[in-house]
Design a protein around this nucleic acid. Structure first.
Lengths: 349, 349
DNA sequence: GATTAGCACTCTCAAGTCGAGAGTGCTAAT
DNA sequence: ATTAGCACTCTCGACTTGAGAGTGCTAATC
């Protein structure tokens, strides 16, 4: 279990074994390594090294006289120590960036795209949560009489985000009064954040105060918990992996993505305290997540720290292509961060 | 293959066979029917009747000396001729209606709830498409300067639906001008629908004309194709059914729900021309849908004909509980129709 | 004439057997 | 330290077998 006593050759063999297993999903035999990678060694030597790696806990045998399979620990060591930082090929990056550029006016579309790109690049299930705007600033309020006593409240945040809410008033109020009230509140709240609005003194008008309260609530929304949309894609990618063909571990894993409380829990416990731009890799449940025993997740936060952050990531089989997946997650997180930053840029362009 | 030559007893046995098969997912033996439903017959008689039903094409044997399984034709006959109209229990209806009542201010939430209710009640995968507003009427426009030359266009429809769009102007325009323009356009377009706006003569102001064009586009959006969100739920329900445990027919079926073009195709070809409130049952692909061979779908349209309609439905194994599922779909479709109607009611309350 | 008891027949399914093949671990030679 | 060689182990698929489930048919019965 001591990492430092691995020789370079052992590391090489571990890497190759992981590489091969990732490709085939089959136990890797010593011979296979030779014929596939043309090592200047005999199979016996490879076997000895593999035995040593097994002693160290990085490889295991499903049964005597089968090839070796990397353990979770093996994957962790690989991801943490052995695997170099990789980047997506420049052409791929360009293609993706271009696609994002075309969706830049529509953040909804951008996040759908993010999920789709993650799923396609990693051949796994992906998820993207909409950014949670913290301490967002008020920009504009509009009150529109829809019919009868029902009015629509449209709140625009400084970031351009639009929040809406229907409500029923006690009495009919003419549109002129509503517009006047909306303008007054827009004046009053200009560039204030949620707590700035909370400390406003009561106005001399019941309607204004009522609406103000709603505005506060609306601005509060998204400050806590996992509000808003969760974008998913590629659930089928996971189901088609051979290791999930028979038993139901795939089902258990997918439930994590389908059930909201589960998901919320997961995100809270993992990436909430991670910095923007850091990609976190969770291999095989890490003890806390029994249902993820045969899966790995690659997660990252995007956005602006303390202002607006979201989470995105990938769920796939434990033998996923970590290099490619991690670089994709990092790259897409960067693009989404850019998008968020774009919409929070100060007024002076 | 001729329906009319079934005796009442044969119909009874067909119904019971379907009922039993729906419960167990196993071929139904003649004995089983006796001991389960206490028929006043011998197994030999039941066997004879079953043989007759098999000749008629309503039952089949997986192999000699196995019980009988209903054919697709059998299910169709059952749903079309034998099954009475059922309704959800009053208490269930109340519970569901109450849940919907609580989401009435938020159509997004309502549709998520609809998907969730459908999935839970039918133990199958569900989908709900947002209503497509046809010929919706303009209510209000707002133009808000976000920063620099970037402005946000917020369009409110008479139904209370809000559509938004970011855009970059060529030059910086002060907020006052934007507001004035927005007000002018709101005047101009009041209560007009898309084609009403299309025939407006050019105004004497480039900015107004540009925005008008965008408004037209925005109002056009959703008139054709499947725009907007598709709400799904309960995909896992399908995966846990025993018949999908091994082979990949479940995967093929779920792809239908995951891949947008597929879905659009399906909806277009099936329910687009169906009337509101009619529940359509598609059993086993019906020839057109190879990937649905072991599945059934129960679909309905909701909304207001010619004004705003959406689709909702359920995808499950062919041996689903049709009575319960159909009544759930009908009931939920009704609730969503109410919701749409609510938001299209004329001004006088 | 409809129903049913009885029985032979068919087919599946699980358990057991077997041999081939894959791959290892060890030992002795290099 | 490496490797050739070989015995050993274990899996996997093919094959066999017997029990059991369930039918279809025939002849007897109501």
């Amino acid at each position: 279990m001591i990492a430092s006593d691995l020789t370079d050759r052992q590391k090489l063999i571990l890497v190759l074994t992981i590489q091969e297993y990732t490709k085939t999903a089959q136990p890797v035999a010593s011979n296979r390594l030779l014929q596939e990678y043309g090592l200047d060694l005999s199979s016996a030597t490879v076997r000895n090294e593999m035995a040593a790696l097994a002693d160290s806990g990085y490889l295991r045998q499903p049964h005597t006289s089968a090839g070796r399979i990397p353990t979770e620990e093996g994957f962790r060591f690989f991801v943490g120590q052995l695997m170099g930082q990789t980047e997506l090929p420049a052409t791929t990056r360009q293609t993706i960036a271009h696609q994002f550029f075309q969706t830049r006016q529509d953040s909804d579309e951008s996040m759908r795209l993010a999920a789709s790109v993650l799923a396609k690049q990693s051949h796994a299930a992906s998820l993207v949560t909409a950014p949670q705007h913290l301490h967002g600033k008020f920009k504009h309020l509009e009150l529109i009489s829809i019919r009868g006593r029902q009015i629509l409240l449209v709140l625009v945040m400084q970031s351009g985000e639009v929040r809406q809410q229907m409500l029923d008033l006690a009495d009919h109020v003419p549109q002129e009064t509503l517009s006047a009230t909306a303008n007054r509140i827009t004046e009053l709240c200009g560039s204030k954040n949620q707590s700035g609005i909370a400390v406003l003194p009561p106005q001399h008008d019941a309607l204004t105060d009522d609406i103000l309260k709603l505005v506060r609530d609306l601005m509060d929304q998204g400050e806590e918990g996992l509000s808003g949309e969760v974008y998913r894609d590629g659930l089928l990618n996971v189901l088609t992996e051979p290791e999930f063909a028979e038993n139901d571990s795939a089902r258990r894993a997918l439930r994590v993505l389908e059930e909201r409380p589960f998901l919320e829990n997961l995100i809270t416990q993992t990436v909430r305290n991670t910095d923007i731009g850091v990609v976190q890799v969770i291999i095989g449940g890490e003890g806390n997540w029994e249902e993820l025993s045969e899966c790995s997740m690659v997660l990252a936060r995007y956005g602006i720290h303390g202002t607006a952050t979201g989470t995105l990531g990938v769920l796939g089989p434990i033998r996923m292509r970590y290099g490619r997946t991690i670089s994709t997650v990092r790259f897409v997180a960067g693009l989404l961060s850019d998008m968020v930053q774009e919409s929070h840029r100060p007024a002076g362009e």
